[in-house]
Amino acid sequence: MHQSEQERVIEMINQIAVNNISAGDNTEVAEVIAGHVTKFWPRRMKAMLNDYITEGGEQLHPAALLAGKKLFSTDN
């Protein structure tokens, strides 16, 4: 089965969340995820993540969803 790019982005951000679960609660893990995405992800991947979150982000780990909302919030 061939994954779409969006499915791969979802898988990757969820892996980052799981790999950093020892950072603390979901809020603290979200900070780690947001930092990683900011530093290492190209605009195209960030845009796919933002689009997915706008659509509801149902398959995201709770910390990944928090990170995405932090990254793309207009309140920042």
Rank of each mutant, 00 (worst) to 15 (best):
N19A: 11
D51T: 11
V9Y: 00
L65D: 02
G57L: 11
L49T: 07
P62C: 10
E5G: 06
E55I: 10
M48V: 09
E5K: 11
E5L: 09
S4G: 01
I13M: 06
S73D: 13
E55Q: 13
G57N: 06
T74G: 13
A64W: 04
I53E: 01
Y52F: 12
M48F: 08
N26T: 12
S22N: 07
K46I: 08
T74Y: 14
I21G: 02
N19Q: 14
D51A: 13
T54C: 08
A23G: 03
E28A: 12
A34V: 02
T27W: 10
E31S: 06
H61Q: 10
T74A: 13
A17G: 04
F40L: 11
G56S: 11
G68Q: 05
S4C: 03
E11R: 15
E58N: 10
I53D: 04
E7S: 14
A63D: 01
I33C: 03
L49M: 09
N20P: 00
K69F: 06
D75T: 12
G57E: 02
H61Y: 11
E7Q: 13
I33Y: 04
M1C: 15
P62F: 08
T38Y: 03
T27R: 15
V29N: 00
A47L: 13
V18M: 12
N19G: 09
N76D: 13
W41Q: 07
K70D: 10
S73F: 12
Q59A: 14
V9L: 02
E55K: 15
N50I: 09
N14V: 10
A30F: 05
A17N: 02
E28F: 09
G57F: 10
A17Q: 04
A23P: 02
A17S: 07
D51N: 10
M48T: 07
G57W: 07
H36Q: 11
A23R: 07
Q3R: 09
A63E: 03
N19M: 14
T38V: 06
H61W: 06
Q15V: 13
T74I: 15
A47M: 12
L71R: 09
M45P: 00
G68Y: 03
K70V: 02
N76E: 14
H61F: 11
A30M: 08
A34L: 05
G68C: 12
D25R: 12
N50S: 15
I16R: 01
A67F: 05
N26Y: 09
E28T: 10
T38K: 11
I16F: 01
N20F: 05
A30W: 04
M1P: 15
D51F: 10
G57M: 08
M1W: 04
L49I: 10
A23L: 07
E11K: 14
I16Q: 00
A64G: 06
N76M: 14
Q59Y: 10
I10P: 00
T27Y: 11
D25I: 08
S4Q: 02
Q6V: 08
G35Y: 08
Y52D: 01
M1Y: 04
I13E: 03
Q15G: 08
N50A: 15
F72R: 08
A34N: 02
H36I: 15
